[in-house]
């Protein structure tokens, strides 16, 4: 069984210290409080939200060229900065994705005892890692072809990175199990799938037919990643449940 699901001396719950918990609850009964009131918190948050300062801006492209120029007619009425922002996000996400797979592969190779290895294929994980890397390079080339700077961090790239911080922490934490890591990876792949779908649609809408066709191929690969990881998580969890009986 994986080490994440062992019974033990978890001390976090109130039931683990009945005498202290009883004393603590008695203290609560001596303290009178009004109804739950979040208006003060809302007022503070609102006073900052109203300032409407964004996290940052989309970098100005040197010149629009290549695909953007050829699709000029359809680009009319659209904001190219939206595309640059989203391309920047995808590039950053795929690049970080390579590192997530690297961390997981290293962890599995280092942990000789982990039973999950008979379920999870390391070769398939390595293949997925390579595909993430190819997607990163693909988006990089597209950005260069439209005159956008692939080395810049766009606002959506920044925020997607913020959202994914916890995933990276789970993956690199030595104490987390294979199924815990795969579940974190599942979060990343689900987000990634949704984001590729959106990017394909955005390119189609902007008349970037060649790009959207390329991106469709990436989406198809990402769908396989998602399906496989979801299946591994299911198999590992069910396997542990069976052994526990």
């Amino acid at each position: 069984m994986e080490k994440s699901t062992q019974l033990g001396m978890n001390r976090t719950g109130a039931d683990m210290s009945p005498i202290h918990s009883k004393a603590m609850l008695k203290g609560q009964s001596l303290f009178k409080v009004g109804p739950i009131d979040s208006t003060g918190m809302a007022a503070i948050r609102s006073s900052y939200v109203q300032l409407k300062e964004p996290v940052g801006s989309v970098p100005l492209p040197g010149t629009f060229k290549g695909v953007l120029t050829s699709g000029k007619e359809k680009m009319t009425g659209h904001n190219p900065e939206v595309l640059i922002n989203k391309l920047g996000e995808r590039l950053a996400f795929e690049r970080s994705g390579v590192r997530l797979y690297d961390a997981l592969i290293m962890k599995i190779e280092a942990d000789k005892a982990d039973e999950g290895k008979d379920i999870v294929s390391i070769n398939l994980l390595k293949q997925f890692r390579e595909e993430e890397y190819e997607h990163f390079l693909m988006v990089k080339e597209v950005m260069e072809s439209v005159g956008a700077d692939p080395t810049a961090q766009t606002p959506d790239a920044d925020v997607a990175g913020l959202a994914a911080l916890g995933i990276q922490k789970v993956m690199t934490e030595p104490r987390t199990s294979l199924s815990q890591c795969l579940e974190a990876l599942l979060t990343a792949e689900m987000t990634d799938n949704g984001a590729w779908e959106l990017l394909v649609e955005l390119c189609e809408e902007m008349g970037l037919d060649d790009t959207s066709a390329e991106f469709r191929r990436a989406l198809a690969q990402e769908e396989k990643h998602l399906e496989q990881i979801k299946s591994w998580v299911r198999q590992l969890t069910m396997g542990q449940a069976e052994k526990a009986l």
Binding site: G13, M24, V33, G40, I44
Partner: peptide, 23 residues
């Protein structure tokens, strides 16, 4: 211009499992 410590805890009472469990 307001007190963050008062705002964050208005009506707060600890309960096992968070105040949502109390509610």
């Amino acid at each position: 211009e307001g007190s963050p410590s008062e705002a964050v805890s208005a009506g707060y009472q600890w309960a096992p499992g968070t105040e949502l469990a109390r509610k």
